[in-house]
């Protein structure tokens, strides 16, 4: 068990570097104007990790900082997801209300499934630090709900079908994998007990690191270009169509007149 904390420290440092690069990239490419909550979420996690860096994980102050920031981070995660779909739905006013129904239904379904899945976590029994256990279970519930919400909304958009920006697709995919993987890792920790704490902690930071690498590599300015195969019929097109019809009538009249 001795090398685990060193490894944990290394991946922790790397994740801080990852957050820093991602925040800088979002600022540099001006993508933070589009994905505001995502930017603030990454910034908040960066600040939190920098504050935690000099602290000993075995101390009470570390636990308080960690627990105190969890609600904010989770709230920002939820806002990131809602922001993502609001951005999509705003571009398609025709399905604005339908999209809101889908969002409402997805939230209800995601909460229901995630809530039911938590029964296994609670059944695992009490631990030495019940507050930490409830925090972990709550976090797992939120992560699974968000993953399910993202997937259900993607299905809704694919069903219509709504063309999406490359960044939105990649962003949604990375976030879903992040939520799912973290949720399953927390599930393992909750069910198999404290012996797994160090291993799961490293796995979660590694997942975060991997997702950060994908965000850094895949989110770019070009990804904001929408690949739209169609566009609404505009007044100009109606005008063109009417002119073509008038032209056809005129041609017929001219031909009739010349006979």
């Amino acid at each position: 068990m001795a090398p685990v904390p060193i490894l944990e420290r290394v991946v922790f440092f790397l994740s801080i570097a990852g957050y820093t690069i991602l925040v800088l990239k979002l600022a540099w490419t001006k993508l933070f104007h589009v994905y505001r909550f995502f930017f603030f979420s990454m910034l908040a996690q960066l600040v939190r990790d920098v504050v935690l860096l000099p602290l000993n994980p075995q101390t009470e102050i570390y636990a308080w900082v960690w627990m105190g920031t969890i609600p904010l981070i989770l709230a920002l995660d939820a806002l990131v997801v809602f922001e993502l779909y609001s951005l999509v739905l705003r571009e398609y006013p025709g399905i604005w209300t339908a999209g809101r129904w889908a969002m409402g239904g997805s939230i209800a379904l995601a909460l229901l499934i995630a809530g039911l899945s938590l029964i296994a976590d609670f059944a695992a029994g009490a631990e030495q630090y019940p507050v930490l256990m409830y925090f972990r279970i709550g976090r797992r519930g939120v992560f699974l709900s968000l993953a399910l919400f993202v997937i259900i909304m993607m299905l809704f958009l694919a069903w219509y079908p709504v063309p999406l920006r490359r960044n939105v697709i990649r962003h949604a995919f990375i976030y879903s994998v992040y939520f799912l993987a973290t949720s399953l890792a927390l599930f393992v920790r909750n069910v198999f007990g404290p012996d797994w704490t160090d291993t799961i902690s490293i796995i979660i930071i590694a997942i975060t690191l991997l997702c950060l690498a994908f965000w850094i590599a895949l989110l770019d300015r070009q990804g904001e270009m929408k690949i739209d195969v169609f566009h609404p019929r505009t007044d100009k097109e109606d005008e063109r169509r009417l002119l073509a019809q008038l032209e056809a009538i005129n041609t017929t009249l001219r031909r009739t007149g010349s006979k």
Binding site: A158, V162, V177, L180, F230
Partner: peptide
């Protein structure tokens, strides 16, 4: 643990399928 990993793998595969569908949205119409 194997069951957890299988659930994760299946979820990611399902996710890839969904993403593929979203990426192709509208292009086959």
């Amino acid at each position: 643990l194997v069951a957890v990993l299988v659930v994760f793998a299946v979820s990611v595969l399902a996710l890839i399928w969904v993403v593929r569908r979203v990426s192709l949205a509208g292009r086959k119409q």
